[in-house]
Design a binder for these strands. Sequence first.
DNA 1: CCAAAAGCAACCATATTTGTTACGTCCGGC
DNA 2: GCCGGACGTAACAAATATGGTTGCTTTTGG
Lengths: 141, 141
Amino acid sequence: MAANSRVTIAAHALAWLELARQRGREVLTSDEVAASINTNAVIIRRSLGDLQRAGLVTARRGNGAGFSLGRPAAEITLLDIWLAVSPEPLLALHHSEPNLECPVGRGIRPVLTDLYDEATDTFRATLARWTVADVLERILA
Amino acid sequence: MAANSRVTIAAHALAWLELARQRGREVLTSDEVAASINTNAVIIRRSLGDLQRAGLVTARRGNGAGFSLGRPAAEITLLDIWLAVSPEPLLALHHSEPNLECPVGRGIRPVLTDLYDEATDTFRATLARWTVADVLERILA
DNA sequence: CCAAAAGCAACCATATTTGTTACGTCCGGC
DNA sequence: GCCGGACGTAACAAATATGGTTGCTTTTGG
């Protein structure tokens, strides 16, 4: 259980929702999504809950309820997913404050922050170039 | 203690080694490096041990020993550091195998692998544009 | 009203990271 | 050749995150 797989879970769920939609099933339950991903339904509800808060899916409760895409699959990028489910930085700064008596300890944090932000931005830009529709298309190809 | 700060620790240590070198101290002990980073000397020896295995620093043992840069600071990039300190994937695939009965479960892994690799490559490319000398220069500016 | 399904809280097991202690190993200097 | 300083490393603890599981509450269509 090292690196987190939340983007994977969420992308899988969205691709599956879209495929089901194309097949005429507008709504899937968390159990049905969980069956494809081979995990627990609670995990799916947690993940899709994040996506719902970001507007990427809609959830209906009550009898006959379930999840649907919140907007067309071609308008949901992997960046949208990443932002919805994984708010952690890719690289962390010091855990405890460095020694401010030392010139390096005093000045390094803003420099690394800038640098990490720059790298993270390029990472995000790549994710932004892919949509759920693209992913599903490549899966079915 | 969530996200790991190993790149930060290693970059800090290298910048500090370079500054010491410019000031005439070719060798620093793990205790001296730890003092700037405000952590334990064992953490430094572990981190610099990784860097040594990658050739980024040299370690001398015995009396009066310590660590020095393995090559000029202008020739050590942040990517070198990232690769040296055991880079985990930025995004993980499924934790347990998805349901292969489902078209999405069957096909999604290579697609996401490709996509994650592409994003990771751009992340790495940004790290590769920065050297320890650049970082130190910006710290002192 | 009822039943189905999301929402949610409380756990548990596992893994990782950082930190700490302790000890082995190496090696320059006396 | 010994000695002491410093790296190398193993073992362990505390804190945190993740994934998983169970059980209960809430919502809502029929």
